[in-house]
């Protein structure tokens, strides 16, 4: 097995919001989606997924409702609220700024070493 990185602190919420932004989705599907998208590079602990979902619901960033899945079972579907969308935009912007800055710094120190 290849070594997987841990998810950086606070990014799980961002990822969940991003997945939920694509349309109503239940917890298991979110776990699946995250696993596929990150291609097993990042370890998404399923155990922390649900507390995160409940926390986001609690903060009004996600709204939840019970619906039938395609297989005919009732599941709890989460969708992004307007507040959640705003939060998502703000957080992705700040994430991008952060990664750019970190990238810059890394390049800079490489240049300095040469």
């Amino acid at each position: 097995m290849t070594a997987k990185s841990d998810l950086p602190q606070g990014t799980l919420d961002l990822l969940i919001l991003k997945v939920a932004a694509l349309g109503p989705v239940h917890g298991y599907a979110i776990a699946q989606r995250l696993q596929q998208v990150t291609r097993d590079v990042v370890q998404v602990p399923q155990g922390s997924l649900y507390p995160a979902l409940h926390r986001l619901e609690n903060r009004g960033l996600l709204a939840a409702g019970w619906k039938d899945t395609e297989t005919g079972r009732e599941a709890k579907f989460y969708r992004l609220t307007r507040k959640g969308r705003a939060q998502l935009e703000a957080e992705s912007a700040s994430w991008q700024r952060l990664t750019q800055a970190v990238g810059l710094i890394l390049k800079l120190s490489e240049g300095g070493a040469q």
Partner: peptide
């Protein structure tokens, strides 16, 4: 195994409820 103890997860979800 993947989910990690159901009761612990539930407990954390309850905590998240506030």
């Amino acid at each position: 195994l993947a989910l990690g103890g159901t009761e612990q997860v539930k407990e954390q979800c309850r905590d998240a409820r506030g």
